[in-house]
């Protein structure tokens, strides 16, 4: 429904405003986008205001305000897009692992890019209809369609590809950049068609999610994880839960409404948890040098 205060994650750009000069740029962007709207309002006032008959002015004012808001978003988007292309001409954004320091050029330009994107995306997200959000993503180079529902979650604005009919659940995060210690890791995240991402789940940079995958609630993918096509994933890190057979036709009667007992549920989930543990152990075994391995 609405986006509550605790889940209102707002801007779809990592919140990184560390330096004063970036703040100045940010304030300049806000100032520059509001001026055309003020001019427009002045024009509207000149056109319709009449002391004897103010009714015209008032009747069309709500519609005009609505239009103004949409235009504010569009103008700030165009300005941000223009600035972004200038910045990208100086330094092309690229994937990789970078140092999180002033001296690292990639990190500095990543901060500048996010500062530029922040204002239009914030404005678009304050509007309850998701359409403007999708427009923002498209303008900033995220491959997506207008029918995707990305409004309730938190999505990065670069190095992400969406297929068709993707739903991002309430309060879930889709990232293409992450900060770990003094490293900044940027990887391309690809999400293909018919993917459903559950509530509160986190998709880390570099994840490749295949078609018809459902990610269950509270699950987490690791950096560079590949999720196979047609499975339901669950857990931290996300592991195969069962085959996604819910894309078949005529399941209205087969999908069971019966309540499962707690013991049965625990058994089902325990089975997968134990499997996780075994896989995890074997993974640690692989990491060890050959001399220390048990078998």
């Amino acid at each position: 429904m609405s986006v509550p205060t605790s889940m209102r994650v707002g801007p779809f750009a990592p919140t990184e405003l560390p330096k004063k000069r970036y703040l100045l740029l940010y304030i300049f962007l806000i100032w520059a986008t509001i001026i055309p709207i003020m001019l427009q309002f002045w024009g509207y006032w000149q056109l319709t205001w009449d002391y004897n008959r103010p009714i015209h002015f008032y009747i069309y004012l709500p519609l005009f305000a609505f239009l103004c808001y949409v235009e504010l978003v569009l103008i700030s988007l165009i300005l941000a897009r223009f600035l972004l292309s200038i910045v990208n001409a100086f330094h092309k954004p690229k994937e990789g692992t970078f140092l999180r320091e002033k001296s690292d050029k990639n990190y500095c330009y990543w901060c500048i890019r996010n500062t530029i994107k922040r204002w239009p995306v914030w404005l678009a997200h304050k509007f309850p209809f998701p359409f403007l959000d999708n427009l923002c993503f498209k303008m900033f180079g995220v491959k997506t369609t207008f029918s995707n529902s990305l409004f309730e979650g938190w999505v990065d604005t670069e190095f992400i590809e969406f297929g068709e009919n993707v739903v991002v659940g309430q309060g879930s995060h889709i990232q293409s950049a992450v900060i770990m210690g003094n490293l900044l890791i940027i990887r391309k995240t690809i999400i293909e068609d018919d993917v459903r991402i559950g509530t509160h789940s986190v998709v880390m940079p570099g994840t490749h999610i295949g078609k018809k995958v459902a990610l269950s609630t509270w699950s987490l993918t690791t950096i560079g994880q590949e999720l196979e096509e047609g499975w339901i994933y669950h857990g931290c890190p996300a592991k195969k839960f069962k085959k996604n057979r819910f894309f078949e036709d005529g399941l209205e009667d087969k999908i069971q409404f019966k309540a499962e007992t707690e013991e049965r549920l625990e058994e089902v989930y325990k089975k997968y948890y134990r499997k996780h543990q075994e896989e995890h152990v074997s993974y640690i075994e692989q990491l060890k040098p050959p001399s220390e391995r048990e078998d």
Binding site: F131, N134, S149, E152, V168, K242, Q256
Partner: peptide, 27 residues
Amino acid sequence: EYLVNFITSSAISRINLKFLLVYLPII
């Protein structure tokens, strides 16, 4: 296989521009 023992989300599935027509008269 057809038992629903996992949870996805209730976010609106397909965004359609025609829903915007609903907002205009209300606003």
